[in-house]
Amino acid sequence: MNSRLKSLSAAILCGALITQLSACGTIFYPERRGQISGQIDPGVAILNGIGLLFFVIPGLIAFGIDFTTGAIYLPGGKYSVAPERLQQAVDADGQVNTAALQQILKHELGQDLPLEQAQQIKNGSLNQLAMLQLTVRG
């Protein structure tokens, strides 16, 4: 029974350390990665703080990772154009109708953007992202 209790304690400790090493915000909110700044999410900060209380080094690492990835920041909640509105320019096959997109952007933003030569980036096309000097998030 004593060895069983030690094994359980070791498993719980390992789980806690792994969670803290990979940072709370990054685990709970992966969609927030890539943010540069914003209002700090108190829930994520408290969870990282608890890790800092019990395990100093992993807690510091968790804060570092969350600040570096931007997962500690609350999302802004504002879009220039709502994603639901932009979805109207996408057909059933996933192709973007540039004329419809141009009309939506003109109506929502009040700007006439030249989209005649715009190219749609396909999922998994790392070469296109590299040409645009963009990185994959996610």
Rank of each mutant, 00 (worst) to 15 (best):
I40S: 04
Q102E: 14
I57T: 11
G59F: 08
E116H: 09
I61L: 15
I36Y: 09
D41T: 03
I46M: 14
R32K: 09
A92W: 07
Q88N: 11
H107V: 10
L52Q: 06
D41Q: 05
S80H: 12
A99L: 14
P58V: 04
R33T: 11
Q88L: 14
P30D: 06
Q119C: 00
A82V: 04
A100Y: 01
H107N: 13
L113Y: 13
K122Y: 04
L115H: 08
R33L: 05
V90C: 06
T69V: 04
L109H: 12
I27K: 03
F28P: 00
F63G: 07
A71Q: 03
Q120M: 08
L60C: 15
L115W: 06
V96W: 05
E116L: 10
A82N: 15
T26I: 00
A92Q: 13
F67G: 03
Q88G: 00
G43L: 13
Q119D: 01
D66V: 07
D66I: 06
V44R: 01
T98K: 15
Q103N: 12
L105T: 08
P75V: 10
S80F: 13
Q39N: 11
G76A: 13
G59Y: 08
I61M: 11
P58H: 06
A62E: 04
I36K: 14
Y79N: 13
G34W: 09
D66E: 07
R33C: 05
L86T: 12
I121N: 10
P30S: 07
L113Q: 07
G64W: 14
G51S: 10
L74K: 15
A71L: 02
I121D: 04
E84L: 09
N97Y: 03
I36A: 14
I27T: 11
K106N: 11
G64Y: 14
D91G: 07
A71M: 02
Y79P: 01
L52V: 06
A100F: 00
V90H: 03
T68M: 08
Q119K: 14
D112H: 11
P42Q: 07
P30G: 06
Y79L: 03
G70M: 07
G38K: 05
A71C: 13
I104G: 10
